[in-house]
């Protein structure tokens, strides 16, 4: 299972990847590698996080075409057009993305930024998309993700992030 979460620096793509990696590794018992990529710029630029999970030990550390591609920013999606065409599951924050590539895979439009803002802050859009991912994939357990979110975030941000996670899940699963 190969997942890429991409956006613009500052949107929490690395944090989302870490939460997902921890959940799959420590709660669901997968072998997991998680990597981050960011440019050498102090600010801005494409930032993304790759998570690979498998029942076997992992020596494949690179994602060519992700099974699940989560995108939080239009410029990032434009840059990854070719990858986006080939992925089976494209999950986008439709509050920030409106130009979509032609693809034979499924596209899931989740207004993550708007949902997050309605809860508390658009910063939680990354977590909304994680929830949507759990809604799309049978292999990703929403309960384990929630448990990880509760452990990972400072207590004052826990509730809003759990709400963000559940809202994303309901959006595609409900």
């Amino acid at each position: 299972m190969k997942i890429r979460i991409g956006g613009w620096a500052g949107q929490g793509t690395v944090l989302a990847g870490t939460v997902l990696g921890k959940s799959l590794s420590l709660e669901q018992g997968y072998h997991v590698v998680q990597q981050r990529s960011y440019s050498a710029a102090v600010r801005s630029g494409i930032a993304y996080s790759d998570v690979i999970a498998d029942k076997e030990e992992l020596d494949e550390l690179v994602i060519e075409i992700p099974d699940y591609l989560l995108v939080l920013y239009q410029d990032t999606l434009d840059e990854w057009e070719d990858t986006a065409r080939k992925t089976e599951h494209l999950i986008v924050d439709s509050s920030r993305v409106d130009r979509l590539p032609e693809t034979t895979g499924e596209i899931y439009l989740v207004p993550a930024g708007q949902i997050a803002e309605d809860i508390a802050t658009s910063k939680a859009a990354n977590v909304v998309l994680l929830g949507a991912l759990a809604g799309v994939s049978d292999d990703i357990d929403i309960g384990c993700l929630e448990k990880t979110v509760r452990k990972e975030f400072p207590s004052k941000y826990t509730d809003l992030n759990v709400k963000a996670l559940e809202s994303g899940y309901q959006k595609v699963h409900g």
């Binding site: 590794s25 590698v33 990597q35 550390l61």
Partner: peptide, 9 residues
Amino acid sequence: AGVGQMREK
């Protein structure tokens, strides 16, 4: 950088 910045169990 591959092993230094990669997260694993």
